[in-house]
Simulated assay, not measured.
Amino acid sequence: MFFNPLFSIQSSNQGDIMGPNTPEDSLYLYNPSHILPAVFAALVGISLLLHIYQNTRYRFWRVTFFICWGGTLFTAGWILRCISSYHPSNKDIFIAQTFMIYVGPPVYSAAAYNIVGRLMHYVPMHAVLNPNRVLTFFVYVGAAVEGITAAGAAKNAAAGNDLSEYKTGGALIAAGLVLQAVAELVVVAIVAAVHRRCARAGRVPPNVRMVCFTLYGTSTLVLLRCICRAIEAFDMFGNLGCRENCGPILGNEWFLYAFELGPMLVFTYWMNMLHPGRYLPSQKERYLCPDGCTERLGPGWLDRRSSWETFVDPFDFKGMLSGVDSHDKYWLRPEEWLICEDGSFAKGSASNARSVPQEKENISLNGEV
């Protein structure tokens, strides 16, 4: 039968050929590890539970819901891989674990897109595009990545003897990886632009700096994962149908854990350690005044263009060319909006948490009272 090597990652201590106890009809090139998938499923699952707790505590579900959804898919994928290791000839379980492991990371990324939008709601004077369209545009991009990747993974895992289906699946997966990599580069560029504008204004509040560096780091991890998966895809197409000596990438299990699981595991724990709900308000109408410390409740981003215009031209190139902004600069009229009396996220004296007394939250991000 034609062998699908995409997920045929072999343990480094098992050599380049199938182990003696591997069934001839196994979908793996090796005796798959039983322990590693279980251990990492537990680690991803623990991070998922921590995200659920933090999203509830900080009332940040609308922004970081996708971290929990991605964590659910990713955890399920590694659980299914553990089950598949005991039933290496079961095609249905093999397809399911392939699908879940591949679609989890793009969902994780969707949470970062939402955080970028919330960051620009918080500092609207430095926004490079309509913050509401960041949410819409990148979620659509994420949905496209998800759909393309899911279709490719399903076709690839179910290809069996059909070489054309296998190639089609691999091409879809590669397209999804490229699209996600481009999206991450755009995210980094947007965050860098907001960061630079804050710096030029002479004020980069500690919470804004923390969110920016978190997004730089998590996007870099996703890019690393995309690059490594792309290299794997090229190696895969150079070794179609192989059963032995399939190359160092396809023939070593640790590549899967180091370059697929590793970056995303760091991603999810990083988001737990520096949860954006600690640094940004849960209300998108709450914004930071140009003085860099006062926060007010404004009307939210108001764009005078129609919805389709903001979607087609999220960066407002038409307004740039005409010299007329399409949005309302409400932050220039601070007297119209109420000052937030519960503190300031920029000073570290405000919190989204319901259960934490205000006096305990009145601590700056640098640890100073």
Results as ranks from 00 to 15, higher is better:
286 R>K: 14
181 A>L: 15
137 F>S: 06
330 Y>F: 13
151 A>Q: 06
146 E>S: 10
35 I>H: 12
279 Y>E: 01
20 P>A: 15
24 E>A: 11
331 W>D: 10
49 L>I: 13
284 K>R: 15
348 G>Q: 00
365 L>Q: 10
55 N>F: 07
145 V>Q: 07
256 L>H: 09
270 W>M: 14
66 F>W: 14
57 R>V: 01
86 Y>V: 10
283 Q>D: 15
274 L>C: 12
148 I>D: 00
18 M>K: 12
243 R>V: 12
109 S>M: 08
61 W>M: 02
192 A>K: 09
265 L>V: 09
165 E>D: 15
115 I>G: 03
277 G>N: 06
81 R>A: 05
51 H>R: 08
355 S>Y: 05
267 F>Q: 00
362 N>I: 05
254 W>V: 13
267 F>C: 00
47 S>N: 13
68 C>I: 10
240 L>N: 06
295 E>K: 02
64 T>W: 02
242 C>W: 04
217 G>E: 00
171 A>W: 12
227 I>T: 09
75 T>V: 12
1 M>V: 13
39 V>Q: 09
93 I>Q: 05
132 N>G: 15
165 E>V: 08
280 L>K: 05
242 C>M: 05
369 V>F: 15
221 L>M: 00
106 P>Q: 02
55 N>D: 08
336 E>L: 15
2 F>L: 13
243 R>T: 15
292 G>F: 05
260 E>M: 07
111 A>H: 00
321 L>G: 07
120 M>G: 04
204 V>A: 03
305 R>E: 06
148 I>C: 04
151 A>F: 11
70 G>N: 06
140 Y>K: 09
163 L>F: 08
350 A>I: 04
42 A>E: 07
308 W>H: 12
212 C>I: 08
176 G>Q: 02
214 T>E: 11
72 T>W: 10
130 N>V: 02
246 C>S: 07
153 A>W: 03
232 E>T: 09
221 L>D: 00
344 S>T: 08
129 L>E: 08
31 N>Y: 12
300 G>A: 03
104 G>E: 04
155 K>I: 08
130 N>I: 00
42 A>G: 09
92 D>H: 09
339 I>Y: 09
332 L>G: 08
68 C>L: 06
314 P>N: 00
